[in-house]
């Protein structure tokens, strides 16, 4: 690079006085702004995105004068971070949310992965129809889904058991289509010759699945599971219809709006953000380490 530049410069010099010199550019404010417009707008958008998160983190250190939080920052305290479980029912709701999300994620991921394999790898009567129908839960408004699920559970006589089981059933339902779509995308891009190569190299059907198919599909399956978990964990609408007397974390947040938010809610919010942030960063670092 340096050689090329030097040669270019000497070439220009030897060609005599005809070498045209670029006029020195005068710094102008308009030009300066134009050069940085994209950067400026980008920063604005980022700020816009992060303000609510910053607000939540800030309020998690707030010491409200009354029993519940106010919108104004009154005094700094570490207290809220050590008394997360103090507000009535907060930690119970978090526990229920985790139980529901983890169960729903496992069920939806297993079922959805199997469905994706069936839809991509096998041709059977009704495959085209299945491919279409699987999108329906995604396209259905949650309110409609929630209301119809409640009506169905009640008419089936489930009204006495509304709670964990019905929430999980409902969550698996709407997570399933996202899992199928995500895993399918991965499988479609997979080269079936790799499996043939494995079979050619003395791997029987199970070993081929275990050693080649599954590891290759794994990024898709993991992505699908993470998606299912986050959809399930913060679902409010469908849960609200199917929860009966049970209270998940989103339902708790909504309920406490009426009584006034306890400041510990902001601690939980900050923690959720920090954990997902750590997962994203960790994933990115892991990805860079292994090309």
């Amino acid at each position: 690079m340096a050689t090329t530049l030097t040669r270019g410069a000497s070439g220009a010099a030897t060609s005599g006085g005809t070498a045209r010199q670029a006029p020195p550019r005068k710094p102008r404010l308009g030009r300066w702004m134009a050069d940085r417009a994209v950067l400026f707008i980008g920063i604005l958008v980022l700020v816009y995105t992060f303000v609510p998160i910053g607000y939540i983190i800030a309020l998690s250190f707030n010491q409200p004068s009354g029993r519940s939080a106010t919108a104004a920052f009154e005094a700094f305290t570490w207290g809220n971070w050590s008394t997360i479980c103090d507000p009535d029912g907060l930690c119970e709701s978090i526990r229920l949310s985790f139980a529901v999300s983890i169960t729903a994620t496992i069920l939806a991921t297993v079922l959805g992965t199997l469905m994706a394999f069936a839809l991509v790898r096998h041709s059977f009567r009704g495959r085209a129809a299945s491919n279409l129908v699987i999108f329906l839960p995604m396209a259905t408004p949650e309110v409609v889904m929630g209301a119809s699920l409640l009506a169905m559970f009640v008419s089936l006589g489930f009204d006495s058991v509304l709670g964990f089981i019905t929430i999980v059933l409902a969550h698996v339902l709407f997570c399933l289509s996202f899992v199928v779509v995500t895993v399918k995308a991965r499988l479609v891009g997979m080269d079936s010759r790799l499996e043939q190569a494995a079979m050619d190299l003395y791997a029987n059907e199970w070993q081929t699945f275990r050693r080649v198919t599954l590891p290759l599909a794994m990024p898709g399956i993991v992505a699908a599971a993470l998606l299912a978990f986050s959809l399930s964990f913060d679902d409010f609408i469908v849960t609200n219809f199917t929860a009966g007397q049970s209270v998940t974390f989103p339902l708790y947040v909504y309920g406490s709006k009426l009584k006034g938010f306890p400041p510990q809610l902001f601690v939980v919010g900050s923690l959720m953000f920090l954990v997902s942030f750590a997962i994203v960063i960790g994933g990115e670092l892991w990805r860079r380490r292994r090309p």
Binding site: R193, L194, A197, M199, L201, P215
Partner: peptide, 20 residues
């Protein structure tokens, strides 16, 4: 015989190496 029971191995077109 199934492919994995044959004393035959293949060099595939475009190799089909396991990327993982």
């Amino acid at each position: 015989l199934r492919p994995y029971k044959r004393p035959v191995n293949t060099v595939f077109q475009s190799y089909a190496l396991f990327p993982h």
